[in-house]
Each structure stands twice: as structure tokens, then as C-alpha cells.
């Protein structure tokens, strides 16, 4: 595990018992903690990429973490263009990954 949630027992802040929630991420059930953002839930599961870029089909996930870079966009309950680092996870949320077809503009292509 690389990206992960700080383990409660080792956390200097002494977290109290969290409320567990379950959501569906890319078709799989994923457990999270009430109060996490969607990015927090996914990073806690060491999922660091959840979007493919439109032109070069590269993996992307969180980058700025504060809602500025728009790299972490996901589809939530059918709605596109939601910043995963800004949206709180709600029990039962269905999160899908933006996998745009690479667009065929005449721009530079690898």
C-alpha cells in the first residue's frame, strides 16, 4: 500500500470511531469513512488514478487536492465533471471514471 488512510491507532490526533460507508467505484464496492471526499476514499484504497485523458489516454487522479486543477474529475451518480477532491462521499454513491474516447482532432498525436 502506498497512498493510504492514516491508521487510527498510529494517528497522533486520536481519531474517534469513524462511521463506515460503502460506495461503488468503477463497478466495485469500496468502503470509506463518512466525511471523506471521493478522492479521499479512492486514495485510501491506493487508487491513485481514476481518469483517462482525452487525447493521449493517460491515467490521472488527484493533483492539487484543493479544487483548482480539475484533474480529479469523476462521474458521480451519472453526473459528469465532479471534482473528486471537493465532493463529500455519500453512502451508496456510484462513482464512474471519465474515460473519454481519445478525440480525433488533427492536433499533435503521439
Amino acid at each position: 500500500m502506498m497512498a493510504r488512510l492514516v491508521r487510527a491507532a498510529q494517528d497522533p490526533i486520536g481519531p474517534l470511531a469513524p462511521t463506515r460507508i460503502t460506495l461503488t467505484v468503477d463497478g466495485e464496492p469500496v468502503e470509506g469513512v463518512l466525511g471523506q471526499t471521493l478522492a479521499g476514499v479512492m486514495l485510501s484504497a491506493d487508487t491513485v488514478a481514476w481518469r483517462s485523458t482525452s487525447f493521449r489516454d493517460k491515467p490521472r487522479g488527484a493533483f492539487c487536492g484543493i479544487g483548482v486543477c480539475f484533474d480529479c474529475l469523476v462521474v458521480v451518480n451519472g453526473q459528469r465533471d465532479v471534482r473528486a477532491c471537493q465532493r463529500r462521499a455519500a453512502p451508496g454513491d456510484v462513482v464512474e471514471f471519465h474515460r473519454d474516447m481519445p478525440l480525433s482532432t488533427p492536433e499533435e498525436r503521439p
Partner: peptide, 21 residues
Amino acid sequence: PGVFTAGGAQALAKGERVAVG
């Protein structure tokens, strides 16, 4: 993936208790 802004990593640590790596 795995590259963050410094502030982003700190926001995830303080606001999420997520270690980015």
C-alpha cells in the same frame, strides 16, 4: 499519478488523514 502539489498533499493529510505515499 502520484505527483501532487505540495499544498494538495498537505490538504489530504490534514483534511482527510490520507498519506499520499
